[in-house]
Amino acid sequence: MRLWSAGNDDDARPAPGTPVFVARDLTKVYRMGEVEVHALRGMDLELFAGEFVVLLGPSGSGKSTLLNILGGLDVPSGGTVRYREHDLVGANERLLTKYRREHVGFVFQFYNLIPSLTARENIALVTEISRHPMAPEEALALVDLADRMDHFPSQLSGGQQQRVAIARAVAKRPDVLLCDEPTGALDITSGKVVLGVLARVNRELGTTTAVITHNAAIAAMADRVVTIADGRISKVLRNEHKASPEDLAW
């Protein structure tokens, strides 16, 4: 295993099919108010370069926790997890920040746009601190929102906000795109548009994409579907034929 180094040590994208994330025996316990929650109870998982994975599970199954750990937002209570050569368990806050900044794009259920910044500025927030970003305009064009550039989040529909969030996530050309219920707050029409954008990013930019959802219908568009229940992986399924997002129905 390589140690963390100061520079950006892995500009080169791994070849499709090589494992980028390897997690072993992950556990996570956290307190929620006065209640102790066992979110992960010993989970083993690999994610491969360039694939589109759907992590499927009901609310409280631990899928968000898993995503947060993969994204360096959280650290597990036990077990190991590596992103390529990087140990995500032993890393300190500063190294995790650097990891997020250089490798990870996040898309959240509730978009988490900064309400006081316009669409373009929300993207610039990321491109300002990235090494090889695309222009905010380019990113917005990718999600078909070039005409909404100077709108504030409050002036955009939910689907549009989520597309801005996706543009913000991909603008820095991340190695992995982690999406937490990206359609959870959207109606079906907007949801399909957003999923279309995610599929397009995965296809055109080759970004490893993990989408977590409790919506089983989305699983059809994935390369692989990992089903999670009660903090463990219960089933892994490979789709021989990926469905197009337009054909999904829920």
Partner: peptide
């Protein structure tokens, strides 16, 4: 809260 989380998730340091 969420904005701070998002900003941190995007790679801004403490």
């Amino acid at each position: 809260r969420e904005q701070i989380a998002a900003i941190k998730a995007l790679g801004y340091g403490n």
